[in-house]
Amino acid sequence: MKKGIIYIVFAIAGLLVFGGCTKEPVDDAGLLITGRSQCYMSFFDLLGSDNRTVLVSGTTQIDTLAQTITAVAKFGTNMTRVKPYSSVVTDATVEPKMGVWVDFSQPMLYTVVSGNRKIRKQYTITVTVQK
């Protein structure tokens, strides 16, 4: 009887060990693919060459249904050299990558990809400059 219990304990331990070795799926960027299907952008900011925000406080509007973001940049902002940042729902990613210098003088398209990488939502981001 005792021997039987020992065998069962070893068997369970073995299964746990093997289970622990299962590889979690990751995407091309090495980021974990999870079960989350939520897919939206929750925050947006734009930095100038001095790495300070160029957006006028309180003007940013995010419409997650229409998948649009509008914002107003301060007077004098050089829109051809700005760096966008955003926050997205947990585990989601943004394509193309933000945090690099881009020309934002025209509306830009960014796609939010859900944590399970199955839902993709394209956002149109439009920033106008105070005139």
Binding site: S49, D50, G76, N78, T80, R81, W101, D103
Partner: peptide, 15 residues
């Protein structure tokens, strides 16, 4: 200086 502006404004000490 890719796409750099032709001006810099709002300058203050230490900038």
């Amino acid at each position: 200086f890719t796409n750099a502006a032709d001006f810099a404004y709002g300058l203050a000490a230490d900038q």
